[in-house]
């Protein structure tokens, strides 16, 4: 039952992450909060692999975490690129107004 402590820490991290995404305004902070939420969920999954003394480690949640990490990294990188590009466009808002398919 040593995993319980890690499950609790993971869930507290997840709650902090959810709070951060909702409350914080800047997209970078939101992205970081989402990563904290993700880390919390992954910590829960890593911890639950420990099924008690004498039992083999459950490899399924570990594999899920490896998959989830790659997904999280990809989404975060895309979020950073979008954030940086939207900053550019706020600095130069008029550059696309002549586009015929432009909306807005």
């Amino acid at each position: 039952m040593t995993g319980l402590g890690y499950v609790v820490v993971g869930l507290v991290l997840a709650a902090m992450g959810i709070w951060g995404v909702v409350v914080l305004a800047h997209p970078l902070r939101k992205l970081l909060a989402l990563n904290i939420l993700g880390s919390g969920v992954f910590l829960v999954l890593v911890a639950v692999a420990d099924r008690g003394a004498g039992q083999a480690v459950d490899p399924v949640p570990h594999a899920l975490v490896l998959t989830g990490l790659v997904v999280a990294v990809s989404a975060t990188a895309l979020g950073l690129v979008l954030m940086l590009r939207s900053d550019d466009d706020r600095a130069a808002p008029s550059r696309d107004q002549s586009d015929d398919k432009g909306v807005g």
Partner: peptide
């Protein structure tokens, strides 16, 4: 489209989508 408003909308969409997926995963 790469236009300003579309990028900002895409970013919000991504953040909402990430939160939604992670809530589901939780």
């Amino acid at each position: 489209g790469g236009r300003g408003e579309a990028i900002v909308a895409a970013l919000r969409y991504l953040l909402a989508g990430m939160l939604a997926s992670l809530l589901y995963l939780l």
